[in-house]
Computed example of a mutant assay.
Amino acid sequence: MRNFIDALNSRVLLTDGDIAPVLAKLSVDIDRATFGHPECLAALNISRPDVITAIHKSYLEAGSDVIRTNTAQASPVALDKYGMREETFIINHLAAEAACQAVDSLAGGDRRRFVIGVVDQSSAQGSDNELRNDAYIQVQGLVSGGVDALSFSPVSGLEQARAQLASARHALIELGSSVPLLLEYSADHDFTDDTVSDLVDGVCYVENSDTIKAGFPVHQDGQKILVHGGKSPEETAQIDHALRKKAADGYRPVTRANVSPREEIVPVSSWNDYSAISAG
């Protein structure tokens, strides 16, 4: 079965878009669903996982290849602001389950869609041990929930970033997981990719969708390209259409030479009859 790294190495992949704009159109009592903290959308993973799954599905129907878990605000430090630090593991676990349920509920057709666990530890604070513990808990929650890959944003300092990434790797080893750990690229990092290459499986570049208008940059080997979806499923469908127009086979632009448009795969639950889904 083709895995997430294989897909990233072969073609540009389109992520989902933002949750908040879609959520605003739904009849959800946000204050109640977030336990009185409407700015903490990660709380919805506990109270309304059905809503999160529905939003993920709307982006998949618009043409997204990759669903990002609703965990941008689910680090222990972020949740501590709302008195939910102790719920870090379960919030991340349920976020992964909600995303996986969305992917498995829709046919994938000529491709498999993926779930990437978002780990934003860039604002983490404390000693190396505290940094390690926070990274460990969040990664364990996401991987136990079923993600296909992890996108990790560490703090900007090299030594602390290595402590975080080493703990993330330790969590994967303890779970016996082969889920790839990707460093999310940031211009704020004051270290090079080579200094953490022993701890990660690659560097993930999330391109602005405006890149489509100018053509795609050719990154070096080992650098993984994702294109960010729109602010809504409708905008994402337009980006999907633009991506297909950039590809000779009407599928996705390749990022590696001599890649067949239809690699041999083993079917999975989300891989049937994509033609039934309107791509806009």
Rank of each mutant, 00 (worst) to 15 (best):
C204D: 11
V268C: 10
S123Q: 03
L23R: 12
Q101K: 06
S27I: 00
T192W: 09
D193I: 08
L14S: 07
S123H: 04
V139W: 03
D120H: 06
M1D: 12
S64K: 04
V254F: 14
G222M: 08
E264Y: 06
R2I: 15
A248N: 11
K57W: 12
D249R: 15
Y185S: 07
L175N: 10
D240H: 12
I265M: 10
M84T: 14
G108E: 14
V115N: 15
A247N: 04
D65S: 04
S144M: 06
S151D: 02
S122N: 08
V66K: 06
N70F: 03
D194S: 10
A171W: 11
R111S: 08
F191P: 12
I19Q: 02
T88W: 01
V28R: 01
T53G: 02
H241N: 08
T192E: 08
E86W: 15
F4A: 10
E130H: 10
L106E: 07
P76E: 06
C204Y: 08
A187Y: 11
Y59Q: 00
L79W: 01
K224S: 11
R169Q: 03
V206R: 10
S260E: 15
S232D: 09
K213D: 06
Q164F: 12
I91F: 00
N208E: 11
Y82W: 15
F191G: 05
S123P: 02
N129H: 05
Y136D: 10
T34W: 00
T236W: 02
V196Q: 07
A20H: 02
V254K: 13
N129P: 12
Q73R: 01
L182H: 13
R48W: 01
G63S: 07
V179F: 13
S186F: 10
N70H: 13
A248W: 14
S75V: 05
E61I: 08
E87F: 08
V227W: 00
A99Q: 04
S186E: 09
S10D: 11
S278A: 04
P261I: 00
A99R: 05
V103L: 09
V103Y: 07
L131N: 13
E263R: 12
L243Y: 05
L199V: 15
F89P: 03
Q164R: 10
L142M: 11
P180N: 07
K245Q: 13
V254T: 15
N272D: 06
K231Q: 03
I212K: 11
P76Q: 06
T195G: 02
L13N: 00
